[in-house]
Design a protein around this nucleic acid. Structure first.
Lengths: 219, 219
DNA sequence: ATATATTTTTAGACTAACCTAAAAATATAT
DNA sequence: ATATATTTTTAGGTTAGTCTAAAAATATAT
Protein backbone atom coordinates (compact mmCIF):
# COMPACT_ATOMS: atom_id res chain seq x y z
CA UNK A 1 0.00 0.00 0.00
CA UNK A 2 1.34 3.40 -0.92
CA UNK A 3 0.86 6.81 0.69
CA UNK A 4 -0.74 9.61 -1.29
CA UNK A 5 2.64 11.22 -1.65
CA UNK A 6 4.24 8.04 -2.95
CA UNK A 7 1.38 7.63 -5.41
CA UNK A 8 1.92 11.15 -6.70
CA UNK A 9 5.56 10.44 -7.36
CA UNK A 10 4.76 7.15 -9.09
CA UNK A 11 2.16 8.77 -11.31
CA UNK A 12 4.48 11.64 -12.21
CA UNK A 13 7.32 9.33 -13.20
CA UNK A 14 4.85 7.35 -15.30
CA UNK A 15 3.73 10.43 -17.22
CA UNK A 16 7.30 11.64 -17.69
CA UNK A 17 8.37 8.25 -19.04
CA UNK A 18 5.57 8.40 -21.60
CA UNK A 19 7.06 11.65 -22.85
CA UNK A 20 10.78 11.04 -22.48
CA UNK A 21 11.33 7.28 -22.29
CA UNK A 22 13.68 6.03 -19.56
CA UNK A 23 15.87 7.65 -16.96
CA UNK A 24 13.72 10.42 -15.55
CA UNK A 25 15.79 13.08 -13.83
CA UNK A 26 15.35 14.22 -10.28
CA UNK A 27 14.88 17.77 -11.48
CA UNK A 28 12.13 16.88 -13.93
CA UNK A 29 10.16 15.17 -11.18
CA UNK A 30 10.76 18.07 -8.80
CA UNK A 31 9.47 20.52 -11.38
CA UNK A 32 6.28 18.56 -12.05
CA UNK A 33 5.54 18.06 -8.38
CA UNK A 34 6.52 21.57 -7.41
CA UNK A 35 8.95 20.33 -4.83
CA UNK A 36 12.72 20.35 -4.32
CA UNK A 37 15.21 17.99 -5.95
CA UNK A 38 16.46 16.91 -2.54
CA UNK A 39 12.97 15.78 -1.56
CA UNK A 40 12.76 13.82 -4.77
CA UNK A 41 16.04 12.04 -4.03
CA UNK A 42 14.68 11.01 -0.64
CA UNK A 43 11.47 9.65 -2.10
CA UNK A 44 13.21 7.89 -4.96
CA UNK A 45 15.33 5.96 -2.49
CA UNK A 46 12.19 4.81 -0.73
CA UNK A 47 10.47 3.83 -3.98
CA UNK A 48 13.52 1.92 -5.08
CA UNK A 49 13.52 0.06 -1.74
CA UNK A 50 9.95 -0.90 -2.52
CA UNK A 51 10.86 -2.07 -6.03
CA UNK A 52 8.74 0.53 -7.74
CA UNK A 53 11.67 2.09 -9.59
CA UNK A 54 15.20 1.17 -10.51
CA UNK A 55 17.65 3.83 -9.50
CA UNK A 56 21.37 4.40 -9.77
CA UNK A 57 22.75 7.58 -8.29
CA UNK A 58 22.96 10.46 -10.75
CA UNK A 59 21.40 8.28 -13.48
CA UNK A 60 17.71 9.09 -13.05
CA UNK A 61 14.92 6.60 -12.37
CA UNK A 62 12.88 4.13 -14.39
CA UNK A 63 9.68 2.41 -13.30
CA UNK A 64 9.83 -1.36 -12.83
CA UNK A 65 7.03 -3.49 -14.27
CA UNK A 66 5.44 -3.41 -10.85
CA UNK A 67 5.81 0.36 -10.77
CA UNK A 68 4.22 0.69 -14.20
CA UNK A 69 1.27 -1.40 -13.17
CA UNK A 70 0.85 0.59 -9.98
CA UNK A 71 1.00 3.85 -11.93
CA UNK A 72 -1.48 2.68 -14.55
CA UNK A 73 -3.90 1.82 -11.79
CA UNK A 74 -3.69 5.31 -10.33
CA UNK A 75 -4.18 6.83 -13.78
CA UNK A 76 -7.12 4.48 -14.34
CA UNK A 77 -8.75 5.74 -11.17
CA UNK A 78 -8.05 9.37 -12.01
CA UNK A 79 -9.59 9.10 -15.48
CA UNK A 80 -12.61 7.07 -14.41
CA UNK A 81 -13.39 9.68 -11.77
CA UNK A 82 -13.07 12.39 -14.42
CA UNK A 83 -15.64 10.61 -16.55
CA UNK A 84 -17.93 10.34 -13.54
CA UNK A 85 -17.61 14.03 -12.76
CA UNK A 86 -18.39 15.12 -16.31
CA UNK A 87 -21.00 12.54 -17.25
CA UNK A 88 -22.91 12.36 -13.98
CA UNK A 89 -22.17 15.48 -11.95
CA UNK A 90 -22.20 18.22 -14.58
CA UNK A 91 -18.56 19.17 -14.24
CA UNK A 92 -17.00 20.70 -17.34
CA UNK A 93 -13.75 19.30 -18.62
CA UNK A 94 -11.68 22.11 -17.20
CA UNK A 95 -13.00 21.57 -13.66
CA UNK A 96 -12.31 17.90 -13.14
CA UNK A 97 -8.59 17.65 -12.68
CA UNK A 98 -8.22 19.01 -9.17
CA UNK A 99 -10.99 16.84 -7.74
CA UNK A 100 -9.79 13.74 -9.59
CA UNK A 101 -6.36 14.34 -8.08
CA UNK A 102 -7.96 13.69 -4.71
CA UNK A 103 -10.30 10.89 -5.72
CA UNK A 104 -7.54 8.88 -7.40
CA UNK A 105 -6.10 8.06 -3.97
CA UNK A 106 -9.21 6.35 -2.60
CA UNK A 107 -8.37 2.74 -1.87
CA UNK A 108 -11.07 0.22 -2.74
CA UNK A 109 -10.86 -2.19 -5.66
CA UNK A 110 -14.60 -2.81 -5.50
CA UNK A 111 -15.28 0.92 -5.71
CA UNK A 112 -13.31 1.36 -8.89
CA UNK A 113 -14.63 -1.75 -10.59
CA UNK A 114 -18.21 -0.83 -9.80
CA UNK A 115 -17.60 2.73 -10.93
CA UNK A 116 -16.20 1.41 -14.20
CA UNK A 117 -19.36 -0.67 -14.72
CA UNK A 118 -21.63 2.19 -13.66
CA UNK A 119 -20.02 4.41 -16.29
CA UNK A 120 -20.39 1.59 -18.83
CA UNK A 121 -16.69 0.88 -19.25
CA UNK A 122 -15.56 4.14 -20.83
CA UNK A 123 -12.44 3.94 -22.99
CA UNK A 124 -11.46 7.62 -22.77
CA UNK A 125 -11.56 10.38 -20.19
CA UNK A 126 -13.14 13.79 -20.92
CA UNK A 127 -9.89 15.05 -22.47
CA UNK A 128 -9.66 12.09 -24.83
CA UNK A 129 -6.94 10.29 -22.90
CA UNK A 130 -7.26 6.51 -22.79
CA UNK A 131 -8.29 4.75 -19.56
CA UNK A 132 -6.01 1.83 -18.65
CA UNK A 133 -7.78 -1.48 -18.05
CA UNK A 134 -7.51 -3.48 -14.80
CA UNK A 135 -4.23 -5.00 -15.94
CA UNK A 136 -2.78 -1.59 -16.67
CA UNK A 137 -2.84 -1.84 -20.46
CA UNK A 138 -4.08 1.09 -22.41
CA UNK A 139 -5.15 1.14 -26.01
CA UNK A 140 -3.12 3.42 -28.19
CA UNK A 141 -4.90 5.60 -30.68
CA UNK A 142 -3.16 6.91 -33.75
CA UNK A 143 -3.69 10.59 -33.25
CA UNK A 144 -2.02 13.57 -34.92
CA UNK A 145 -1.76 17.17 -33.91
CA UNK A 146 -4.14 19.30 -35.93
CA UNK A 147 -1.14 21.36 -37.00
CA UNK A 148 0.34 18.36 -38.85
CA UNK A 149 -2.71 17.75 -41.05
CA UNK A 150 -2.58 18.73 -44.70
CA UNK A 151 -5.11 20.81 -46.57
CA UNK A 152 -8.38 18.98 -47.19
CA UNK A 153 -7.62 16.28 -44.61
CA UNK A 154 -10.53 15.43 -42.34
CA UNK A 155 -10.53 14.03 -38.83
CA UNK A 156 -12.23 13.86 -35.49
CA UNK A 157 -11.10 15.70 -32.38
CA UNK A 158 -9.87 13.03 -29.93
CA UNK A 159 -7.85 14.86 -27.35
CA UNK A 160 -5.84 17.81 -26.15
CA UNK A 161 -2.16 18.09 -25.39
CA UNK A 162 -2.32 21.10 -23.09
CA UNK A 163 -5.20 20.54 -20.69
CA UNK A 164 -4.96 23.79 -18.76
CA UNK A 165 -8.23 25.40 -17.75
CA UNK A 166 -7.63 28.40 -19.98
CA UNK A 167 -7.14 26.30 -23.08
CA UNK A 168 -10.13 24.07 -22.34
CA UNK A 169 -12.42 27.01 -21.66
CA UNK A 170 -11.23 28.62 -24.88
CA UNK A 171 -12.10 25.45 -26.80
CA UNK A 172 -15.54 25.40 -25.18
CA UNK A 173 -16.10 28.95 -26.32
CA UNK A 174 -15.14 28.03 -29.89
CA UNK A 175 -17.46 25.04 -29.82
CA UNK A 176 -14.60 22.55 -29.99
CA UNK A 177 -15.30 19.28 -28.18
CA UNK A 178 -14.25 15.62 -28.38
CA UNK A 179 -15.89 13.88 -31.30
CA UNK A 180 -16.28 17.02 -33.39
CA UNK A 181 -15.38 16.56 -37.05
CA UNK A 182 -12.83 18.99 -38.37
CA UNK A 183 -11.67 19.60 -41.92
CA UNK A 184 -8.57 21.58 -42.78
CA UNK A 185 -9.55 24.09 -45.45
CA UNK A 186 -6.41 26.11 -45.73
CA UNK A 187 -2.97 26.32 -44.15
CA UNK A 188 -1.24 29.67 -43.80
CA UNK A 189 2.51 29.07 -44.09
CA UNK A 190 3.37 32.48 -42.68
CA UNK A 191 2.18 32.06 -39.10
CA UNK A 192 1.13 28.42 -39.15
CA UNK A 193 -2.50 29.29 -38.55
CA UNK A 194 -5.16 27.32 -40.36
CA UNK A 195 -8.69 27.70 -41.58
CA UNK A 196 -10.90 24.81 -40.56
CA UNK A 197 -14.45 23.73 -41.11
CA UNK A 198 -16.46 22.49 -38.15
CA UNK A 199 -20.24 22.12 -37.71
CA UNK A 200 -20.59 23.51 -41.24
CA UNK A 201 -18.94 26.72 -40.15
CA UNK A 202 -15.54 28.03 -41.17
CA UNK A 203 -13.14 29.43 -38.62
CA UNK A 204 -9.50 30.27 -38.29
CA UNK A 205 -7.28 28.81 -35.56
CA UNK A 206 -3.83 29.90 -34.55
CA UNK A 207 -0.84 27.60 -34.71
CA UNK A 208 -0.73 27.48 -30.94
CA UNK A 209 -4.22 26.03 -30.82
CA UNK A 210 -3.53 23.65 -33.69
CA UNK A 211 -0.45 22.35 -31.90
CA UNK A 212 -2.46 21.36 -28.87
CA UNK A 213 -5.40 19.58 -30.45
CA UNK A 214 -5.23 15.91 -31.36
CA UNK A 215 -7.09 14.65 -34.40
CA UNK A 216 -7.77 11.11 -35.45
CA UNK A 217 -7.59 11.21 -39.23
CA UNK A 218 -10.52 9.83 -41.19
CA UNK A 219 -9.43 6.89 -43.37
CA UNK B 1 -9.06 23.88 5.83
CA UNK B 2 -8.49 20.85 8.03
CA UNK B 3 -6.25 17.82 7.65
CA UNK B 4 -7.79 14.37 7.44
CA UNK B 5 -6.63 13.71 10.93
CA UNK B 6 -8.20 16.87 12.26
CA UNK B 7 -11.43 16.01 10.47
CA UNK B 8 -11.48 12.59 12.08
CA UNK B 9 -11.17 14.12 15.53
CA UNK B 10 -13.88 16.68 14.81
CA UNK B 11 -16.27 14.03 13.56
CA UNK B 12 -15.59 11.77 16.51
CA UNK B 13 -16.25 14.52 19.03
CA UNK B 14 -19.48 15.34 17.18
CA UNK B 15 -20.73 11.77 17.43
CA UNK B 16 -19.73 11.49 21.08
CA UNK B 17 -21.54 14.72 21.93
CA UNK B 18 -24.70 13.37 20.30
CA UNK B 19 -24.53 10.45 22.74
CA UNK B 20 -23.22 12.07 25.90
CA UNK B 21 -23.89 15.81 25.68
CA UNK B 22 -20.99 18.12 26.54
CA UNK B 23 -17.51 17.68 27.89
CA UNK B 24 -16.12 14.76 25.95
CA UNK B 25 -13.19 13.13 27.72
CA UNK B 26 -9.78 12.62 26.22
CA UNK B 27 -10.06 8.91 26.89
CA UNK B 28 -13.39 8.55 25.11
CA UNK B 29 -11.95 10.15 22.00
CA UNK B 30 -8.82 8.03 22.21
CA UNK B 31 -10.91 4.87 22.43
CA UNK B 32 -13.03 5.75 19.38
CA UNK B 33 -10.05 6.73 17.27
CA UNK B 34 -7.93 3.83 18.49
CA UNK B 35 -5.14 6.15 19.54
CA UNK B 36 -3.50 7.24 22.79
CA UNK B 37 -4.86 9.81 25.21
CA UNK B 38 -1.66 11.84 24.93
CA UNK B 39 -2.14 12.15 21.16
CA UNK B 40 -5.67 13.34 21.79
CA UNK B 41 -4.47 16.03 24.19
CA UNK B 42 -2.08 17.33 21.54
CA UNK B 43 -4.75 17.45 18.87
CA UNK B 44 -7.30 19.04 21.19
CA UNK B 45 -4.91 21.89 21.83
CA UNK B 46 -4.61 22.50 18.13
CA UNK B 47 -8.36 22.32 17.56
CA UNK B 48 -8.95 24.73 20.39
CA UNK B 49 -6.41 27.14 18.83
CA UNK B 50 -8.50 26.94 15.69
CA UNK B 51 -11.73 27.61 17.57
CA UNK B 52 -13.22 24.25 16.73
CA UNK B 53 -13.57 23.21 20.37
CA UNK B 54 -13.57 24.84 23.76
CA UNK B 55 -11.18 23.18 26.11
CA UNK B 56 -10.09 23.58 29.71
CA UNK B 57 -7.46 21.23 30.98
CA UNK B 58 -8.85 18.11 32.61
CA UNK B 59 -12.41 19.24 31.79
CA UNK B 60 -12.96 17.57 28.43
CA UNK B 61 -13.89 19.28 25.17
CA UNK B 62 -17.03 20.69 23.57
CA UNK B 63 -17.50 21.68 19.95
CA UNK B 64 -18.03 25.37 19.21
CA UNK B 65 -20.80 26.35 16.80
CA UNK B 66 -18.16 26.52 14.12
CA UNK B 67 -16.94 23.07 15.13
CA UNK B 68 -20.46 21.66 14.99
CA UNK B 69 -20.99 23.02 11.53
CA UNK B 70 -17.68 21.67 10.35
CA UNK B 71 -18.50 18.27 11.80
CA UNK B 72 -21.98 18.19 10.29
CA UNK B 73 -20.45 18.89 6.90
CA UNK B 74 -18.11 15.94 7.22
CA UNK B 75 -20.99 13.70 8.30
CA UNK B 76 -23.05 15.01 5.40
CA UNK B 77 -20.33 14.00 2.98
CA UNK B 78 -19.89 10.60 4.61
CA UNK B 79 -23.58 9.78 4.43
CA UNK B 80 -24.10 11.07 0.90
CA UNK B 81 -21.23 8.89 -0.29
CA UNK B 82 -22.81 5.93 1.50
CA UNK B 83 -26.03 6.51 -0.42
CA UNK B 84 -24.07 6.71 -3.65
CA UNK B 85 -22.25 3.46 -2.96
CA UNK B 86 -25.44 1.56 -2.16
CA UNK B 87 -27.80 3.11 -4.69
CA UNK B 88 -25.46 3.39 -7.66
CA UNK B 89 -22.54 1.03 -7.14
CA UNK B 90 -24.21 -2.07 -5.67
CA UNK B 91 -22.51 -1.93 -2.30
CA UNK B 92 -24.44 -3.53 0.53
CA UNK B 93 -25.00 -1.57 3.72
CA UNK B 94 -22.30 -3.40 5.62
CA UNK B 95 -19.63 -2.59 3.02
CA UNK B 96 -19.93 1.16 2.75
CA UNK B 97 -18.42 2.49 5.93
CA UNK B 98 -14.74 1.97 5.23
CA UNK B 99 -14.87 3.54 1.78
CA UNK B 100 -17.03 6.45 2.96
CA UNK B 101 -14.42 7.10 5.65
CA UNK B 102 -12.02 7.91 2.83
CA UNK B 103 -14.42 9.73 0.55
CA UNK B 104 -15.63 12.06 3.29
CA UNK B 105 -12.29 13.87 3.20
CA UNK B 106 -12.46 14.91 -0.46
CA UNK B 107 -12.50 18.68 -0.64
CA UNK B 108 -14.84 20.17 -3.24
CA UNK B 109 -18.07 21.96 -2.43
CA UNK B 110 -19.26 21.56 -6.01
CA UNK B 111 -18.67 17.83 -5.87
CA UNK B 112 -20.82 17.32 -2.82
CA UNK B 113 -23.62 19.57 -3.98
CA UNK B 114 -23.77 17.90 -7.38
CA UNK B 115 -23.65 14.50 -5.73
CA UNK B 116 -26.56 15.50 -3.52
CA UNK B 117 -28.57 16.51 -6.59
CA UNK B 118 -27.54 13.41 -8.52
CA UNK B 119 -28.83 11.25 -5.68
CA UNK B 120 -32.02 13.32 -5.61
CA UNK B 121 -31.45 14.92 -2.22
CA UNK B 122 -31.66 11.85 0.00
CA UNK B 123 -32.71 12.44 3.60
CA UNK B 124 -31.21 9.29 5.09
CA UNK B 125 -28.15 7.13 4.57
CA UNK B 126 -28.38 3.35 4.05
CA UNK B 127 -28.46 2.74 7.82
CA UNK B 128 -31.33 5.15 8.33
CA UNK B 129 -29.21 7.96 9.77
CA UNK B 130 -30.23 11.47 8.72
CA UNK B 131 -28.09 13.45 6.28
CA UNK B 132 -27.34 17.01 7.48
CA UNK B 133 -28.26 19.76 5.02
CA UNK B 134 -25.76 22.34 3.71
CA UNK B 135 -26.20 24.43 6.84
CA UNK B 136 -25.47 21.47 9.08
CA UNK B 137 -29.02 20.97 10.34
CA UNK B 138 -30.38 17.48 10.49
CA UNK B 139 -33.98 16.49 10.80
CA UNK B 140 -34.74 14.51 13.89
CA UNK B 141 -36.94 11.48 13.60
CA UNK B 142 -38.80 10.10 16.58
CA UNK B 143 -37.54 6.57 16.61
CA UNK B 144 -37.73 3.92 19.29
CA UNK B 145 -35.73 0.78 19.84
CA UNK B 146 -37.74 -2.26 18.84
CA UNK B 147 -37.20 -3.56 22.37
CA UNK B 148 -39.24 -0.68 23.82
CA UNK B 149 -42.37 -1.36 21.75
CA UNK B 150 -45.37 -2.92 23.42
CA UNK B 151 -47.32 -5.92 22.22
CA UNK B 152 -49.38 -5.21 19.11
CA UNK B 153 -47.54 -1.99 18.32
CA UNK B 154 -46.61 -1.56 14.68
CA UNK B 155 -43.80 0.42 13.07
CA UNK B 156 -41.34 0.71 10.28
CA UNK B 157 -37.67 -0.11 10.53
CA UNK B 158 -35.78 3.19 10.21
CA UNK B 159 -32.30 2.49 11.45
CA UNK B 160 -29.78 0.51 13.42
CA UNK B 161 -27.88 1.38 16.55
CA UNK B 162 -25.03 -1.09 16.13
CA UNK B 163 -23.90 -0.89 12.52
CA UNK B 164 -21.17 -3.51 12.65
CA UNK B 165 -20.85 -5.70 9.58
CA UNK B 166 -21.86 -8.80 11.52
CA UNK B 167 -25.09 -7.25 12.70
CA UNK B 168 -25.96 -5.83 9.29
CA UNK B 169 -25.26 -9.10 7.54
CA UNK B 170 -27.38 -10.89 10.11
CA UNK B 171 -30.25 -8.51 9.42
CA UNK B 172 -29.86 -9.10 5.68
CA UNK B 173 -30.13 -12.83 6.29
CA UNK B 174 -33.31 -12.35 8.30
CA UNK B 175 -34.78 -10.16 5.58
CA UNK B 176 -34.73 -7.07 7.76
CA UNK B 177 -34.19 -3.82 5.82
CA UNK B 178 -35.02 -0.15 6.15
CA UNK B 179 -38.66 0.47 5.40
CA UNK B 180 -39.84 -2.97 6.44
CA UNK B 181 -43.01 -2.97 8.52
CA UNK B 182 -42.76 -4.80 11.80
CA UNK B 183 -45.47 -5.72 14.29
CA UNK B 184 -44.73 -6.91 17.80
CA UNK B 185 -46.81 -10.02 18.39
CA UNK B 186 -45.53 -11.11 21.75
CA UNK B 187 -42.95 -10.08 24.32
CA UNK B 188 -41.21 -12.68 26.41
CA UNK B 189 -40.49 -11.15 29.82
CA UNK B 190 -38.05 -13.87 30.75
CA UNK B 191 -35.25 -13.17 28.25
CA UNK B 192 -36.55 -10.01 26.60
CA UNK B 193 -36.92 -11.74 23.26
CA UNK B 194 -39.94 -10.95 21.13
CA UNK B 195 -42.05 -12.48 18.45
CA UNK B 196 -42.60 -10.18 15.50
CA UNK B 197 -44.48 -10.23 12.26
CA UNK B 198 -42.74 -9.06 9.09
CA UNK B 199 -43.62 -9.67 5.43
CA UNK B 200 -46.56 -11.72 6.69
CA UNK B 201 -44.20 -14.12 8.42
CA UNK B 202 -43.72 -14.61 12.13
CA UNK B 203 -40.27 -14.80 13.64
CA UNK B 204 -38.60 -14.52 17.00
CA UNK B 205 -35.82 -12.04 17.69
CA UNK B 206 -33.50 -11.93 20.68
CA UNK B 207 -33.37 -8.96 23.00
CA UNK B 208 -29.93 -8.12 21.68
CA UNK B 209 -31.33 -7.70 18.19
CA UNK B 210 -34.35 -5.78 19.42
CA UNK B 211 -32.11 -3.37 21.31
CA UNK B 212 -30.24 -2.43 18.16
CA UNK B 213 -33.08 -1.86 15.73
CA UNK B 214 -34.84 1.48 15.51
CA UNK B 215 -38.54 1.59 14.70
CA UNK B 216 -40.67 4.57 13.77
CA UNK B 217 -44.02 3.82 15.33
CA UNK B 218 -47.08 3.94 13.10
CA UNK B 219 -49.56 6.64 14.17
C1' DA C 1 -10.23 12.81 55.18
C1' DT C 2 -6.79 10.43 53.57
C1' DA C 3 -5.02 6.77 50.59
C1' DT C 4 -5.52 4.66 46.25
C1' DA C 5 -6.89 4.39 41.60
C1' DT C 6 -7.84 6.50 37.37
C1' DT C 7 -7.54 10.03 34.03
C1' DT C 8 -5.15 13.60 31.83
C1' DT C 9 -1.26 16.16 30.73
C1' DT C 10 3.65 16.86 29.98
C1' DA C 11 8.18 15.67 28.33
C1' DG C 12 10.78 13.68 25.09
C1' DA C 13 11.30 10.64 21.05
C1' DC C 14 9.98 8.72 16.42
C1' DT C 15 8.55 8.70 11.32
C1' DA C 16 7.11 10.64 6.84
C1' DA C 17 7.61 14.24 4.00
C1' DC C 18 9.27 18.21 3.32
C1' DC C 19 13.02 22.09 3.48
C1' DT C 20 17.93 24.78 3.03
C1' DA C 21 22.68 24.85 2.34
C1' DA C 22 26.80 22.65 1.19
C1' DA C 23 29.31 18.95 -1.14
C1' DA C 24 29.89 15.78 -4.92
C1' DA C 25 29.16 14.30 -9.51
C1' DT C 26 28.18 15.24 -14.17
C1' DA C 27 27.64 18.25 -18.21
C1' DT C 28 29.06 22.23 -21.02
C1' DA C 29 32.01 25.74 -23.06
C1' DT C 30 35.93 27.58 -24.63
C1' DA D 1 41.44 19.62 -21.38
C1' DT D 2 40.51 22.46 -18.09
C1' DA D 3 37.36 25.75 -16.02
C1' DT D 4 32.69 26.74 -15.20
C1' DA D 5 27.93 25.74 -14.79
C1' DT D 6 24.37 22.64 -13.73
C1' DT D 7 22.42 18.74 -11.57
C1' DT D 8 22.15 15.57 -7.92
C1' DT D 9 23.08 13.99 -3.47
C1' DT D 10 24.11 14.47 1.40
C1' DA D 11 23.73 16.48 5.91
C1' DG D 12 21.06 18.42 9.05
C1' DG D 13 16.68 20.75 10.36
C1' DT D 14 11.26 21.42 10.52
C1' DT D 15 6.37 20.11 11.09
C1' DA D 16 2.32 17.08 11.81
C1' DG D 17 0.94 13.35 13.97
C1' DT D 18 1.93 9.74 16.51
C1' DC D 19 4.10 7.08 20.62
C1' DT D 20 5.95 5.76 25.71
C1' DA D 21 6.82 6.87 30.29
C1' DA D 22 6.47 9.85 34.03
C1' DA D 23 4.16 13.63 36.45
C1' DA D 24 0.03 16.07 37.75
C1' DA D 25 -4.77 16.43 38.52
C1' DT D 26 -9.09 14.45 39.55
C1' DA D 27 -12.14 10.73 41.13
C1' DT D 28 -13.20 6.88 44.27
C1' DA D 29 -13.21 4.08 48.36
C1' DT D 30 -12.83 3.15 52.85
Amino acid sequence: MFSQSEENYIKTIYHLEADFKKGISTNAIAKKLDTKASSVTDMIKKLSEKDVVTYKKYQGVTLTDFGKKTAANIVRKHRLWEVFLVDKLNFSWDEVHEVAEQLEHIKSPKLINELDAFLEYPKRDPHGDPIPDKEGNLQIIEKSLLSTLKENEIGVCVGVDDSSSEFLRFLDKQGVALGKQIKVVEKEPFDGSLVIEMDGKTLSVSNKIASNLYIQKSR
